[in-house]
Computed example of a mutant assay.
Amino acid sequence: MDHTSTAETDLGDGLDDAAEQPDDEVAEQRRQLAEELGLQIKVQRTAKKLTRVQLAAAIPMNLKTLQRIENGDTAANINQLFDICRALDIAPSDLINPAEKKVGIKGRE
């Protein structure tokens, strides 16, 4: 029987730490960034004359997931973002740079 205590095995995910919870401003920026990234994906997709069905098949990705990303309902994770960029034959910066400028995200100084 394993006698290791929960405290010893719990590496912590930070979810219970109030200091790590994003404040309202950060949460809003994240929401806006997800929305803008989705818009940039749609702009790039339509510029290449691809339908969502075609892009989803090329990735491959569930169509509903792609719709939710493009609509800004969910944020693409790094793997999804990479796969989308690969399928669109663009660099991730082609999506991220316009989105971050629109949202007004600045690096730490």
Results as ranks from 00 to 15, higher is better:
Met1Ser: 09
Asp2Ser: 04
His3Cys: 02
His3Thr: 06
Thr4Asp: 07
Thr4Ile: 12
Thr4His: 07
Ala7Met: 05
Ala7Leu: 10
Ala7Arg: 00
Asp10Tyr: 05
Asp10Thr: 07
Asp10Gly: 02
Leu11Lys: 09
Gly12Ala: 05
Asp13Gly: 13
Gly14Lys: 00
Leu15Met: 05
Asp17Leu: 00
Ala19Thr: 12
Ala19Leu: 04
Gln21Phe: 06
Gln21Leu: 11
Asp23His: 09
Asp23Pro: 07
Asp24Pro: 01
Glu25Ile: 07
Ala27Glu: 15
Glu28Tyr: 00
Gln29Ile: 09
Gln29Arg: 11
Arg30Lys: 08
Arg31Thr: 07
Arg31Trp: 01
Arg31His: 09
Leu33Lys: 03
Glu35Leu: 14
Glu36Ser: 11
Leu37Pro: 04
Leu37Thr: 03
Gln40Lys: 05
Ile41Phe: 10
Ile41Pro: 03
Lys42Gln: 12
Arg45Cys: 01
Thr46Arg: 11
Ala47Trp: 09
Lys48Glu: 15
Lys49Thr: 12
Leu50Trp: 15
Thr51Ile: 09
Thr51Glu: 06
Thr51Met: 09
Arg52Asn: 11
Val53Gly: 09
Gln54Lys: 14
Gln54Tyr: 05
Leu55Lys: 04
Leu55Ala: 03
Ala56Thr: 10
Ala58His: 06
Ile59Ala: 06
Ile59Glu: 12
Asn62Arg: 12
Leu63Arg: 14
Lys64Asn: 13
Lys64Arg: 14
Thr65Ala: 13
Thr65His: 13
Leu66Lys: 02
Gln67Glu: 15
Gln67Arg: 13
Gln67Ser: 08
Arg68Gln: 13
Arg68Ile: 02
Ile69Leu: 11
Glu70Gln: 05
Gly72Ala: 05
Gly72His: 10
Asp73Ser: 04
Thr74Phe: 05
Ala75Trp: 02
Ala76Lys: 03
Ala76Glu: 00
Asn77Phe: 04
Asn79Trp: 04
Asn79Met: 05
Gln80Gly: 02
Gln80Ser: 14
Gln80Leu: 03
Leu81Ala: 15
Leu81Trp: 01
Phe82Met: 08
Phe82Ile: 07
Asp83His: 12
Asp83Asn: 12
Ile84Glu: 00
Ile84Asp: 04
Ile84Cys: 01
Cys85Val: 04
Arg86Asp: 14
Arg86Ile: 03
Arg86Thr: 14
Ala87Ile: 06
Ala87Cys: 08
Ala87Asp: 10
Leu88Gly: 02
Ile90Ser: 01
Ala91Glu: 13
Ala91Pro: 01
Ser93Val: 11
Leu95Phe: 03
Ile96Glu: 00
Asn97Ile: 07
Asn97Leu: 10
Asn97Trp: 02
Asn97Gln: 09
Lys101Val: 10
Lys101Thr: 13
Gly104Ile: 07
Ile105Val: 15
Gly107Val: 09
Gly107His: 14
Glu109Ser: 14
